[in-house]
C-alpha cells in the first residue's frame, strides 16, 4: 500500500513539472481559452464519479454518486463546448468563398 502511495507521489511530482513547463509561454490573448480548456480537463473527475456510483452499496452513496456524475458531466461537456466556442473565433479569416457572409469585412 505504501508502495502504491510512492508511485502516486512520483506521478504527482512529474505532473507538477509538466504542468508548469507546458504553459511557460502563452500569449495573453490565449489566457482565457487556456483557463477554459484546463477547466474541461479537470472534468476527468467524471471517471471518478462513475467509479463511485458504479461501486455504491448504500442509498447515501448512490445519491451522492448520482449527483457527482451529473455535476462532472456538466463540467466536461460545458468545458469543452465553451472552449471550442471561444477558439472558433480565433480561426484565421481566410478570404475564400466561405466568408462571403461577412460582407467583405476586410475590404
Amino acid at each position: 500500500m505504501v508502495n502504491a502511495l510512492l508511485q502516486y507521489a512520483t506521478v504527482l511530482m512529474l505532473a507538477i513539472f509538466v504542468g508548469i513547463e507546458i504553459i511557460a509561454k502563452v500569449p495573453s490573448i490565449l489566457h482565457t481559452p487556456l483557463m477554459s480548456g484546463s477547466n474541461a480537463i479537470h472534468g476527468v473527475i467524471l471517471v471518478g464519479s462513475m467509479l463511485i456510483l458504479g461501486g455504491a452499496n448504500s442509498n447515501l452513496q448512490e445519491v451522492l454518486g448520482f449527483l457527482a456524475v451529473i455535476l462532472a458531466t456538466m463540467n466536461v461537456v460545458g468545458g469543452f463546448v465553451v472552449t471550442d466556442r471561444m477558439l472558433e473565433m480565433f480561426k484565421p479569416k481566410t478570404p475564400g468563398p466561405k466568408s462571403s457572409k461577412s460582407d467583405g469585412a476586410a475590404s
Partner: peptide, 12 residues
C-alpha cells in the same frame, strides 16, 4: 485523475 488534476493545478 492524479495526472489530469495535477496538470490543471500546476498550470492553473
Amino acid at each position: 485523475l492524479i495526472v489530469a488534476g495535477t496538470l490543471v493545478g500546476a498550470s492553473g
